[in-house]
Design a protein around this nucleic acid. Structure first.
Lengths: 322, 322
DNA sequence: TTGTACGCGTTATCAG
DNA sequence: CTGATAACGCGTACAA
């Protein structure tokens, strides 16, 4: 494989001159430039990026650390990759499969200078473990966290969830049942608080003891539908933690011949493409802009800039299930 | 940031010795090893991978080149990333957004030694353009291509499509309408041939002049549903090029009160998770195994090994739409 | 405008 | 068992 030395030799100039031609950096006589460029073209030469990385101490590569691929992540990924590319950065996928060791390994790459920064989706380890890696490069997470070392682009789900609750209330529902995701996540905590405050305000019973957590898959949604038909006095409206779960409910509801929204109103969360297909009322938040914000935060830290961030807000998308 | 020199100095040994300790390569007296290891631990030192890459001439990084993120790709991605990780490789995402220049740029990274190999999903440029990059590293594509330079993991869609056609025929359908994706793709060509051969065998009219191509999104499927209701003698069965399109049809059909499968039977293609939610009959092919095969092919070329490949075959998944 | 010399951080080779 | 030295390929003060 040809390298800069070879070009220099053939062009009868020094390495530095070749380097200048390539990087358009510094003065080169037009004549020399042409001579060098010709050799470069002839040999089809391209600089070795690893050498440049080593020299520069950066890789222009940002790692995305995530346990897996949900359809939510997909949106993040493409938005993030697109904006990153615009600023000359690549994106490396670091999947952890919910394994703590894998997650640490991913963060190690920061230390090993394989990536310049980390966009972190959902954690497996405790924050204390991950925080330590911030000294090797900027870390931005999607999750809600209070840390001086790890930055976040979280949106306050309290507001989002309330949007759904008020919507159902206005539609006349008084027997509302919310379901939740990961119990300990701060987003869930915020949603539960929204539920509680809502009940207080509307003088409803929050039934905090009966709260059900950890719904994730569409299968979980199917199970809720099976539960619903068996209830003697089932809720007239249900809020799900994600579109995915809601859609599972709808799929099963069809088979069980539950009529939505007449018998029960349904609200999802995320406004992913699937919600449109199921004509599902849901809470939208601008994942696209969140992903861009994530990149901007990383970029600002990396380059000591102050690129402005997008303003983010929740929106209720009313469709056929309410 | 600490480097090997610093460790060497503090441990009062040479760089070489430190290197031996790190890589477990060569003889080191137990006593010296401990002394060095202690300093390494104290300084929390990790070798700079870029230096190692430069030295080794490889990055242990494989690029996935794709125009965007469909849900199909999602499955590929996670399967590929998982198996790659098992063999010590990372995965870098190279999105092209259907832009020819972007695609070339992605392949350039092979030349620049930023990635060791490429897993290529769907092309934008002509094969001749991409082929040239094979001399810089192995390239495996998902698409069907006849090339000595680019390897492929394609499955012959002829078989898959026929599976769907026979299924409909057995169900008694004689007025069948197939729709297709990218007209020029070899997969589409194979499917059209399957359609033609099927018609010939069953003495049906293939109506080759009326064939409709380029259906991709679920919106395209919606449009077909709108077309269907207006027809005076609509087909009794429809084959769609992907689950995505089929599901769009189903979503719209619901609103237009078309009864599936009584009025019209529907078959998708891909068996993605969404097909289960819509209870859609579809053609399954093992994307997971395909992705692993892609990695094995790259790995075999990279390491001159002969890891065996999975055997792949299509399967009809009968659900509620036929 | 061009060239020299050195450093980036690592490992492999060879000598001892 | 250990150390000196030469690569890997590039960028860049500094000198000319």
């Amino acid at each position: 494989m040809s390298n800069i030395n070879e070009i220099a030799k053939l062009a009868e100039v020094s390495r530095s001159t070749v380097s200048r031609v390539i990087s358009n950096n510094g003065y080169v006589k037009e004549e020399t430039r042409k001579k060098v460029q010709k050799i470069i073209d002839e040999l089809d030469y391209t600089p070795n990026q690893n050498a440049i990385y080593l020299k520069n101490g950066e890789t222009k590569n940002i790692g995305i650390v995530s346990p897996d691929f949900s359809d939510v992540l997909t949106i993040f990924l493409s938005s993030f990759a697109t904006i990153a590319k615009k600023y000359g950065y690549q994106v490396t996928l670091l999947l952890t499969d919910y394994d703590k060791k894998s997650e640490v390994e991913a963060f190690q790459k920061l230390k090993q200078k394989q990536i310049d920064g980390v966009f972190h989706i959902v954690r497996s380890n405790e924050w204390e473990v991950l925080e330590k890696y911030s000294k090797y490069g900027p870390i931005v997470t999607w999750q809600r966290v209070q840390s001086t070392k790890i930055d976040t682009i979280f949106m306050d789900h309290y507001e989002g969830f309330k949007l759904g609750l008020y919507h159902l209330y206005e539609k006349g529902h008084r027997k509302i049942k919310p379901f939740f995701g990961i119990e300990k996540s701060l987003n869930t905590v915020a949603r539960v608080k929204a539920w509680y405050d809502f009940c207080l305000e509307k003088q409803l019973d929050p039934k905090l003891d009966d709260i059900i957590y950890d719904l994730h898959s569409s299968n979980d949604g199917r199970k809720i539908a099976q539960w619903w038909v068996k209830e003697t006095t089932p809720p007239t409206a249900v809020l799900f933690p994600t579109d995915n779960v809601a859609v599972g409910f709808l799929a099963e509801a069809r088979e069980l011949e539950i009529v939505v929204p007449n018998q029960v109103a349904i609200i999802g969360f995320d406004n992913t493409f699937i919600s449109e297909l199921f004509n599902l009322t849901t809470i939208d938040y601008p994942m696209h802009l969140q992903a861009e914000n994530a990149f901007f935060k990383l970029y600002n830290q990396l380059k000591h800039k102050e690129l402005p961030l997008h303003k983010l807000e929740f929106k209720l998308i009313e469709r056929g299930t309410t």
